[in-house]
Design a protein around this nucleic acid. Structure first.
Lengths: 209, 209
DNA sequence: TATATTTTGTTGCATTTGCAACAGAATTAA
DNA sequence: TTAATTCTGTTGCAAATGCAACAAAATATA
């Protein structure tokens, strides 16, 4: 929807403005950030991909979000509680622009031209995030593993405009993302193949309704 | 977090501005809006409460969001597909302010003071929405009905600062919200009572860990 | 290259969940 | 006030899911 939005341009502006945004490079596997209560960090993934991961008190891992280039994360979008630990882990080399939201909105004098740009740009980024979250909520409200898989595959089909696509996660991670047991998911994948709904070769899947 | 934000003031501004926002009153049970592809409506619930409801192709109902005073909805936040029908239904008398996003951003001349206010206000509203969505995602990623109930109850406990609270939904709707079977949920509620985790009297529940 | 680690694929079994169905209570509408 | 409708509470049974465990394959590391 906001395809006209240029993330490179925006992050460029951010770094040259009163926002005093900083840029940092991370390598695959690095912890980009952990969520801290009462901080209001805004992070923008300029390049690369990452996962927002939660570990609950029992040590169960959940992939809360999968982040791609141009997507935003940080405490400002997330209610941080003491029950969970939240980390963003780089899945590939990542370039991240970050700043503290309050420092911008508080310190800058009124009328600064950059604030207008900042607000409208952030609004676009957050609207995109909201859309992504709604897709995820739709996925999670599906009652069966089969429906979850089908919904997930359909989303990938639409995104890539093709019935054949690559799952951008390992099957282990996909199970965490769909919030189901991995072995049960594998069983369901097998049934879907046997019944002719899909064919697959590693992470390459073809939907053939 | 954005408790300083005044929804009444903002909607007032909206109606008196170039945004040409409209206000409408709805009675309990009324359909406030249905989501239409390629429209970009923004609705603000000035007073009252409502549910965003989805019916899938099999007729299954899901409560996608529960909306309170000051919350926003409309296509601009939601990827509308052809597979689902989405409605917002008033749960009580509702006052709704609405406008088409594109009409504002496109038609208005640059530099209009109101646009600055609009963007920063919308940003705050959307950030709140993102937070609410993240809470919902956390809920839905819980693996068992028991955990879902406990998470939901804990949220209500924190919101009301008390171990005793009223569930703002019927049990039928709560099951739709948690995305589980109602009878299975009732069974789980019974177990939670028998094991001494909760006590309840109608919609009044006390958590007693 | 050899070794360690992670991921995939699979199965049996226990548990949880959903489905269907029904009666009584509560609420709403006539 | 009565009738209709919706909600609550419950159960038996079937189906889906999770758990535990393991071997083979793939990948990462030394």
């Amino acid at each position: 929807m906001y395809s006209d939005f240029n993330i490179q341009e925006f992050t460029q502006q951010l770094q040259n403005s009163c926002a005093k945004a900083q840029t940092k490079i991370f390598q695959k596997g690095d912890t980009i950030t952990s969520y801290i209560k009462n901080r209001n960090q805004v992070c923008i993934l300029k390049t690369g991909s990452a996962d927002l991961v939660r570990y609950d008190v029992n040590g169960n891992k959940t992939i809360v979000e999968t982040l791609k280039e141009g997507e935003v994360f940080g405490e400002i979008f997330f209610p941080v509680t003491t029950n969970n630990e939240l980390f963003v882990i780089a899945k590939s080399k990542c370039e991240v622009v970050y700043f503290i939201y309050d420092e911008i909105t508080d310190k800058c004098t009124r009328g600064c031209k950059f604030h207008e740009v900042l607000n409208s740009s952030l609004l676009k980024l957050v609207l995109n995030k909201t859309m992504a979250q709604n897709i995820r909520i739709e996925l999670l409200t599906k009652r069966s593993i089969r429906e979850k898989l089908q919904t997930y595959f359909t989303t990938l089909t639409k995104a890539g405009m093709s019935r054949t696509f690559f799952i951008p996660l390992s099957y282990t991670d996909l199970a965490d993302y769909l919030s189901v047991d991995r072995s049960a998911m594998m069983r369901e994948l097998k049934s879907l193949q046997e019944e002719g709904f899909i064919s697959r070769d590693g992470n390459k899947v073809t939907l053939k309704y």
